[in-house]
Amino acid sequence: MKVSVLGCGRWGSCIAWYLDKTGHEVLSCGLPDAPEFIQLKTTRKNDYLSFPESIEVSDDLEYAVNRAEVIIISISSQYLRSYFEDISKYNLDGKIIVLCMKGVEVTTGKRLSQVVGDFVDTSKTPVAVWVGPGHPQDYVKGIPNCMVIDSDNQEVKEKLVSEFTSELIRFYLGTDLIGSEIGAAAKNVIGIAAGMLDGLGYTSLKGALMARGTREIARLIKALGGNEFSAYGLCHLGDYEATLFSPWSHNRKYGEQFVKGVKFEKLAEGVMTSKALYKLGQEYGVDLPIVHAVYEVLFEGSDVEESLRKLFLRSVKEEF
């Protein structure tokens, strides 16, 4: 299968590496002036992995789109709309779009598949999402994990799972696109909260954070029309180890360094996602105390310790 991976950051480069390893014809495409692309183009490696010669590297977006049967996109979620304004100039009929990023568009509250749906006819250009746990640092060492591919198109979903599954990544068929996308995006917000707890020395509270975080995101998924049990699957709860505990988690690290007053230089998708989910909670009347606490700290200047203390000292209520 001819696959073009658009975006060559940490996850995009790992996807290209993985799909080449599983026997596909892979092209990695990036912006010509992006440092991560320049590094891959000139050295064929980055901080996480090395590209074999079988992976083509290019900054020609038109070529990357035209050659591909499957177009995988791995960029910052808030740039997806402007990026698709460029991609949609080319003929996408018959191609499959796979989104390998986790977020909700802040300006509209739309899931990322809905953003793509503003540009393509999904009956001609089906859209899927690839979500779940895993870090490049583990995959390149041969440490396996499980992930999910979800789509409203059953045939496409089954095809992708069949083509992409290997001993390194076992893919499951997602059954709830709303839940898969919201759950995957929301786990980054919970990850920031976990990092804040680490920074304050309250790491033991992360168990409670996991339990309550899953409940509130389940409520949001249900309110949006999805299956609340998706929050307990690989898209959300199943990704907590990689997001709330891993030293490689950007969102956890962001939260920890925020508490310590240290600027975090890498992308933490949970920052803008907290704003998007906060707005969705307000719009749909869903109680999202953890999302609300993170949003207040990041965007309203609330004191971190005070916000987290209030979070865990709320009024008495039944657990379920």
Rank of each mutant, 00 (worst) to 15 (best):
V259C: 07
F229E: 15
W248T: 04
L288V: 06
L237D: 03
W248K: 12
G238N: 04
L298I: 07
L277Q: 00
G261E: 02
G261I: 05
V291R: 04
G238T: 02
V286A: 14
H292R: 14
G261R: 09
P247V: 11
W248M: 11
Q282E: 10
Q257M: 15
F258T: 04
K253F: 04
P289S: 09
F229K: 15
P247C: 11
Y254P: 08
R252H: 09
P289V: 00
E228H: 15
A268T: 00
Y295N: 03
P247E: 13
Q257A: 12
I290T: 05
G285T: 05
G255K: 03
E241F: 10
Y295H: 08
V259W: 03
G285D: 04
E228P: 14
V262Q: 10
F245W: 06
E256C: 10
S246R: 03
C235D: 02
D239G: 09
L288F: 09
P247H: 12
E265D: 11
G281K: 10
E296G: 14
D239N: 10
G255I: 00
F245L: 13
S274L: 02
E241K: 10
Y284L: 14
Y284Q: 12
E283D: 13
V286I: 11
N227A: 07
L244K: 04
L244R: 03
L280T: 03
G285Q: 07
E228F: 14
V271T: 07
L298Q: 05
G285I: 00
G281P: 07
L280W: 04
Y254Q: 10
T273G: 13
A293Q: 00
G226N: 11
V294D: 07
N227F: 01
G255R: 05
E265W: 03
Y284H: 15
S246H: 01
V297I: 15
Q282T: 00
A276D: 02
Q257G: 09
F229T: 15
L244M: 12
W248R: 11
Y295I: 00
Y232T: 14
C235F: 03
T243P: 00
Y232N: 14
Q257D: 12
L280K: 04
S230K: 08
Y240E: 08
Y254C: 12
S230Q: 03
V286K: 13
Q257R: 15
E241G: 04
K260Y: 03
K263F: 02
K263V: 08
E296W: 05
